[in-house]
Nucleic acid binder design. Structure first.
Length: 1167
RNA sequence: GGGCGCUUAGCUCAGUUGGCUAGAGCAUCUCGUUUACACCGAGAGGGUCAGGGGUUCGAAUCCCUUAGCGCCCACCA
């Protein structure tokens, strides 16, 4: 009764079903493994794939290695947990979604923060599902019930808790420092998120002006507009005399001072030996400036374009254009000495390849060098994060495989600078810092009250809104819904902590609709206030307002959303004022703008709406004339903006203040305040620039407003920091945040939470962290840093680093090169098992692996071979396998049985050994691995023999079962499927892993004997083959030994006993053996152990055989000479180990015999 | 500039304290549709272990050096 088993293994039909079966069994969850309490744990935290896009071969390889380890350990009876998840990957995901919406012609500002985040979440949901499905496709036996996402509620709380803890321990601080800024992402980057690209560049040698005594050299002339010093080496004789001198220069952007300073770090050989110090736009210059207390002039803005600091000739230009312009300026003034071509490395963003601008900025940092002591902590006793992170690897608490990466790790860790963790991205964990303004702390940002982590306290006072670029010049505008009393206002201002404040009060005085007070300093009333007007005007429904101010009465008219003002004192504004606007100074036609309103802090300004963005770009003011005009009209400038027709929320504002000179911050504050007031706080105001100097984006609706890094408070609530945390901050706590009890609300404190999380106790530290070496720094290092600190234990015991997957040429796979292989396609074509094998075989820790389709195809054959081996055994069973409980009868085994059992035992040992040492490839293919056993030993020899001798089902089944177990971690699908076919009512996945029994007392003899059989069979086959005799054609064979020395009685017994095997496998008609025969008819060949005489008459090609034999003789003579030389060397005999010498002697003897035989053969052939 | 790695058969790679005439798989060539498998079987050919030097009784393996390739780090302004 034969079962139907397909001839070829068909993975497509099998894999999904098998995976479902595993998943439904619940055995991916270690709690369902029915193990004793004290069973050893084995846990892996799956490196969370980015929640973006698809799984690529890199993921496939990672999943393969981890699944392999998990399955191996699970079968060994350990509590095996593989915890899967995904990472929100803020910068990568946000960039991706930005690209997607760009195809729709939109930017994130078009959508606004909320909608944009919705879009991202939608996208993430989608890719998470894709990733999960593809992870399943790979056969990953991870515990889906414990799946996590970095933005999960629990994980997010963990982030806040850790942040707070670090803050409280003084390890997190907010600092004003130079950071890496990506203009495209509009965000900071950590040092290691910056990549470098080699580039040709020009090296300009020039002087600031004709009389300047020192020439400097630079590749970025445009930054020199922000120079405040020249640094030279103190030993440099050329410049010594200038050190300490201060020069005044003007590069066309106003005068500033240049101080000549000494710095030992300056290379005298390089360039001119003098460098222009640009504190705001170079990391090293920043440090020099810090040391020397230099002024820092910012000339490039967050958009990567020159800002007002560079002067009006440059403001708004891209750095590149500004460079050209500045070089032209230098040429015109004959200041350039020479220009050289040099190789330089350009810093680019690791996510979008945009060149990085170093910019000064206020950001949050993790202090890595600060030494702290935590009571009762085994690591932190006057140690820094860096100290401990180094220590745990140095003392082998964490082992990195391969070891050489430890050096890399040390090197990186030792050079680590404070880690900038704030990002100006929208997607991610908001920094858990809340700000609140208070009276006595209002003057400096540094003294803002800060609330870290957790929930906010109750509101304790009320402000209508606050605006201002910095607190010292910050403004508060409010509508106070109560009767105005003469001396009340200063008190209110004090109470709410305004440094400058405006109040609009509803008046009961019938002459006025409102009254207002503006306080330029606390308690000091002043007459001017544009925001007040706006704030006030918008607070009333009436279209005509009469407002009382200290400056006089103002009439406000609202018409079609426009507001017109008329005052009797400071400004005369008519409703037809737009006619009077100096549009000609702006370089645009009058139809292209309209007056919208007026506002002011000190001096009134106009607010003008421009028709569209294009028009706004055209604006090119004539400052000289504007200045004059302003003076006449008592104006200080304009605020121009464009309202997006489609989306009312998008507004670009451009501020001109030719009268006072432009102060970015103030302009921002003014515009922001005005607009916020005018539009009833419907906007977030974000300082930024696109093409214009001093422009402000009023970008989207929210209840929070950010102005130039400060907050715009509404309703006096605590306001959370707008920035998000570096993605790696949350990844850094991944190993334990995922194991914390997700029902976290029942724990009040972090300590309680940790104590109340059983999984954490059970599975942490994780056993192995398996990942690519490319994220050693990004991730591994940060996990070590964060976990040792937070939990007082390491995140993992071992780190296994795999290499990158590359194409056949060794190139990185990438979409642009089109050389990528899609794992899904490969799985479709060849099956997951084949793909997995192609990942494992030929790979070694830390080394890249080359991947190409032919390789995968090759391993499909491997899988199929196993399938057919099993098919044969299963089909050839006399009785059903199911009831096969019969033990192997060890007393009744044939030579082949014994041989295969010993070989199998040896295989178990090899596989175990390889896996324990993370040598996955060698378990399978290298040397005597699984492949060799399965294919070359079991299939090619044992199964063939078993067709000849009486079948020993018990042996066949035992070997197959064991083989399947050994194969399972590598190729889980096919093995499980075969297991089914064997009618086992169990899952192979949780079968017990084989142990090598070391029962091989007979091993050596068995091997020798079977080797003899194989040798004879191979020899006969070879002879036939070389003489073009079909294997099928039966020949007569005589096996002979000239002397008893090389072929014993026992050998003859073996041959006799297994005669039928030789006859069958080698195609032999009659087999005889003799001793001492010198010559028989026909043809002769020698093996090293036996001589085989094959009687095949005339069919031999004697010439060829003679030649071959001669060559062989030559070779062996050479070899013997070598050995003799060795043995003749007294030094060798004296100093080499005894067993080596003994081996050499044996070799000598054997080859001498062989040589004699070969000579005999030649003699026979010659006849 | 500093660090790490690689170079072994046409290709992909093993070769773990230095000791089999340096091994696999793929590809090549020859023969073969033998009732598990042509996604197969039987056999064969193919390497100055990148070059040079050194240590050693003995080097693919350890040291030095040269060349080529690759990667990482770094503030050459």
């Amino acid at each position: 009764m034969k079962k139907e088993i397909p001839k070829a293994y068909n993975p497509q039909e099998v894999e999904d079903k098998i995976y479902k079966k595993w998943e439904e069994s619940g055995k991916f969850d270690p709690d369902n493994l029915e193990l004793p309490e004290d069973a050893e744990k084995f846990s892996i935290s799956m490196p969370p794939p980015n929640a973006t896009g698809f799984l690529h071969l890199g993921h496939a390889s990672m999943l393969t290695y981890q699944d392999l380890m998990i399955r191996y350990n699970r079968m060994q009876g350990k509590k095996a947990l593989w915890l899967p998840g995904t990472d929100h990957a803020s910068i990568a995901t946000q960039t991706k979604v930005e690209k997607i919406i760009a195809k729709e012609g939109k930017t994130k500002y078009d959508l606004g923060r909320e909608k944009f985040l919705e879009r991202i979440n939608e996208y993430v949901e989608n890719s998470k599902n894709t990733i999960k499905n593809q992870t399943r496709k790979m056969g990953s036996s991870c515990d889906w019930s414990r799946e996590r996402y970095t933005l999960d509620d629990g994980l997010s709380r963990a982030v806040r808790e850790v942040f707070t803890k670090m803050y409280n321990d003084g390890l997190i601080y907010r600092g004003d420092r130079i950071v890496n800024w990506c203009p495209r992402c509009e965000s900071t980057l950590a040092d290691d998120e910056v990549e470098h690209k080699d580039q040709k560049g020009k090296f300009y040698y020039f002087k600031y002006n004709k009389d300047f005594p020192i020439t400097i050299a630079t590749t970025r002339p445009e930054t020199k507009l922000g120079d405040t010093a020249i640094a030279v080496n103190p030993k440099d004789k050329r410049y010594k005399k200038y050190i300490g001198q201060i020069f005044e220069i003007d590069l066309g952007n106003g005068t500033h001072k240049i101080k000549v300073i000494a710095d030992r770090g300056i290379d005298m050989e390089f360039g001119t030996g003098a460098i222009g110090v640009t504190p705001a736009h170079s990391m090293i210059d920043w440090e020099i400036a810090e040391k020397n207390d230099l002024e820092k002039i910012k000339v490039i803005g967050e958009d990567g374009k020159m800002n007002v600091g560079a002067g009006k000739d440059y403001a708004g230009l891209t750095a590149l254009k500004a460079r050209k312009k500045f070089v032209k300026y230098l040429q015109k003034n004959d200041l350039i000495e020479k220009v050289e071509e040099v190789d330089q490395s350009l810093s680019i963003c690791y996510r979008c390849d945009t060149p990085i601008e170093p910019l000064p900025s206020k950001q949050w940092f993790v202090a890595v060098d600060k030494k702290i002591t935590i009571e009762g902590n085994k690591y932190f006793q006057n140690k820094s994060l860096k100290d401990v992170s180094l220590e745990v690897v140095r003392n082998r608490e964490i082992k990195i495989i391969p070891e050489r990466f430890e050096k890399t790790y040390y090197n990186w860790m030792e050079n680590l600078h404070d880690w900038c963790i704030s990002r100006q991205l929208w997607f991610g964990h908001r920094i858990p810092v809340y700000y609140k303004l208070k009276v006595d702390k209002v003057h400096k940002v540094e003294s803002q009250e800060i609330y870290i982590g957790g929930k906010l306290p109750e509101n304790d006072y009320k402000i209508a809104n606050v605006f201002g670029s910095n607190i010292s010049s910050g403004n508060i505008a409010g509508v106070v819904d109560k009767e105005f009393k003469e001396n009340e206002m200063p008190e209110i201002a004090k109470e709410i902590g305004a440094s400058e404040s405006v109040f609009v009060l509803k008046s009961k005085n019938s002459n006025y609709d409102a009254e207002f007070r503006f306080f330029s300093k606390i308690g000091e009333e002043t007459p001017l206030c544009g925001h007040a007007l706006l704030a006030g005007a918008t607070s009333f429904d009436k279209s005509d307002l009469k407002i009382k101010t200290l400056a006089g009465d103002i009439v406000v008219q609202k018409e079609d959303n426009k507001i017109f003002f008329q005052t009797d004192k400071s400004i005369r504004i008519k409703s037809n004022f737009s006619e009077e606007l100096p549009f000609e100074f702006l370089g645009i036609e009058k139809e292209e703008f309209e007056l919208l309103g007026i506002f002011s802090i000190g001096v009134p300004k106009l607010i003008v709406r421009i028709k569209d963005i294009e028009t706004l770009r055209k604006v090119n003011p004539d400052f000289e004339n504007l200045k004059k005009w302003n003076k006449e009209k008592n104006f200080s400038g304009y605020c121009l903006f464009v309202e997006d027709k489609k989306n009312k929320n998008l507004v670009f504002v451009r501020q001109f203040n030719p009268f006072l000179g432009i102060n970015e911050d103030e302009a921002t504050a003014v515009a922001a305040g005005a607009l916020a007031a005018f539009f009833d706080n419907d906007f977030i105001v974000k300082q930024g620039t696109e093409n214009f100097e001093n422009e402000i984006y009023v970008r989207y609706k929210d209840d929070k407003i950010l102005i130039g890094g400060n907050v715009f408070l509404k309703n006096s609530e605590w306001t959370q920091d707008f920035d998000t945390l570096d993605t790696w901050f949350s990844s850094g706590i991944w190993t334990f945040s995922t194991l914390l009890d997700q029902d976290h609300e029942k724990y009040k404190t972090f300590e309680e939470w940790v104590a109340g999380s059983p999984d954490l106790k059970k599975f942490h530290p994780t056993s192995v962290m398996e990942t690519g070496y490319d994220i050693l720094f990004f991730w591994i290092a940060r996990m070590i840093l964060m976990t040792t600190y937070t939990l007082d234990e390491v995140p993992f015991e071992n780190v296994y680093l795999h290499g990158m997957v590359r194409d056949k040429q060794g190139k990185k796979m990438s979409k642009s090169l089109g050389n990528g292989i899609d794992p899904a396609t490969m799985i479709e074509k060849y099956g997951t098992d084949a793909l997995r094998l192609s990942m494992i075989i030929g790979s070694s820790p830390g080394n890249d692996i080359k991947m190409y389709e032919e390789k995968i195809e090759g391993y499909r054959n491997f899988v199929n071979k196993l399938w057919n081996v099993s098919r044969y055994i299963i089909l050839s069973q006399k009785s059903k396998v199911k009831s096969q409980k019969s033990e192997i009868d060890y007393d009744n085994l044939t030579l082949a049985d014994k041989w295969i059992l010993e070989e199998l035992d040896n295989l178990i040992y090899i596989v175990n050994n390889s896996l324990e040492n993370y040598q996955f490839s060698s378990a399978l293919e290298v040397g005597d691995g699984i492949r060799d056993f399965m294919w070359n030993k079991f299939a090619d020899w044992y199964l063939e023999v078993s067709k000849v001798q009486e079948k020993n089902d018990a042996v066949l089944i035992y070997v197959l079962e064991t083989l399947l177990k050994l194969c399972h971690p590598f190729i889980p699908f096919v093995t499980e499927r075969i297991w089914e076919e064997m009618d086992k009512n169990s899952l192979l996945m949780v079968e017990k892993w084989p142990e090598d029994k070391k029962r091989c007392l007979e091993l050596i003899q068995v091997n020798v004997d079977f080797d003899l059989l194989q040798g004879i069979i191979s020899e006969i086959r070879r002879i036939k083959n070389e003489n073009k005799i079909s294997l099928k054609e039966k020949v007569d064979v005589v096996i002979n030994s000239e002397t008893r020395k090389d072929l014993t009685k026992a050998d003859f017994d073996v041959i006799e006993k297994n005669k039928n095997i030789i006859e069958k496998l080698a195609g032999v008609k009659s087999l005889e053996f003799e001793v001492g025969v010198k010559k028989i008819e026909g043809w002769i060949h020698f093996d090293h152990k036996v001589s085989v005489y094959v009687n095949i008459g005339d069919l031999i090609d004697t010439e060829k055989e003679i030649e071959k034999t001669k060559k062989e003789i030559e070779n062996i003579e050479k070899y013997i000479t070598q050995i003799r030389k060795k043995l003749g060397n007294d030094n060798f005999v004296a100093s080499a180990p005894r067993e080596i010498v003994e081996k050499e002697r044996e070799k000598h003897q054997e080859s001498t015999i062989k040589l004699e035989k070969l000579k005999g053969k030649l003699e026979l052939l010659d006849n």
